[in-house]
């Protein structure tokens, strides 16, 4: 046999559109990621139209939006949800229908760039309703855990190159050396707690800091809490030692 057909899973980034105003969206995008950035590495992208089911107008400048995403080294490959006209438009642009796609990885929402938009009720962050996801094995480089719609508790080390993602809070009762992404679906009240904070990246509701700027000595390798602080229009991560 010259071929083999296999079932394969593939992590996608999801871009949830919260406004049908493409111009504004592109403007927000450029503001956040610049025109062309090295932030993405040819990642496959799902366009999530779930919040745009009202009305039945195709998006203006849809091809310009796709071009912008491609210039940022993203590959739009599929779409989910949306009104009929929008779905037809996406299908015509060669995107696959992926209504069954599960948020198995970090959802990349435009939340951090969104404060200028009117917060619609549909986009309101969901509080975790079920108990936390408990992980008791070490997470090593390349491994990823996502607590969908809930908190995440990890009792073993999270090594450099590993990723812990939760829609709610993240607690790590061991050295946290990988990436920690709390409030992945936009919950700005989410926090990250670690008993030994040495993370490569900390992110809450899309606001992130990398270890390029070293953590301040009063929290580095110490027990600490990270939360999002909003001051006027700016947001920043506040990192405090836990006494």
């Amino acid at each position: 046999m010259s071929f083999e057909l296999k079932s394969t899973q593939w992590p996608l980034l999801a871009l949830a559109l919260r406004s049908a105003d493409t111009q504004r969206l592109m403007q927000d995008w450029r503001q956040r990621y610049g025109g062309e950035s090295g932030f993405f590495d040819q990642d496959a992208l799902l366009l999530d139209f779930s919040a745009l089911s009202e009305g039945n107008e195709p998006l203006a400048d849809f091809s310009a939006l796709l071009a912008l995403l491609r210039a940022a080294h993203l590959h739009p490959v599929a779409y989910r949800g949306g009104a009929a006209a929008l779905r037809e438009q996406a299908a015509a642009a060669g995107l696959a229908r992926a209504d069954d796609a599960l948020d198995a990885v970090q959802a990349l929402t435009t939340s951090a760039a969104a404060p200028a938009l009117d917060p619609s009720p549909a986009a309101a962050p969901e509080r975790p309703a079920v108990g936390a996801l408990l992980i008791e094995r070490p997470l090593r480089s390349g491994q990823q855990v996502y607590a969908r719609g809930r908190d995440l508790i990890v009792t073993a080390m999270v090594n450099p190159g590993a990723e812990v993602v939760a829609d709610g809070h993240i607690h790590v009762y061991a050295p946290l050396r990988g990436k920690a992404i709390a409030g992945a679906r936009g919950d700005e009240t989410a926090c990250i707690f670690a008993t030994c904070l040495e993370a490569e990246l900390l992110s809450i509701a899309g606001t992130y800091r990398t270890s390029e700027v070293p953590l301040p000595p009063e929290v580095r390798s110490k027990a600490a809490r990270v939360r999002l602080q909003r001051h006027l229009d700016a947001e920043r991560l506040l990192i405090e030692a836990i006494a």
Binding site: R137, L139, R140, S141, G142, Q143, N159, P160, G161, A162
Partner: peptide, 13 residues
């Protein structure tokens, strides 16, 4: 060390 860490993750999965 990081690559070994990755391999250890694969050994256990």
């Amino acid at each position: 060390v990081r690559d070994s860490d990755r391999i250890l993750g694969m050994l256990s999965s």
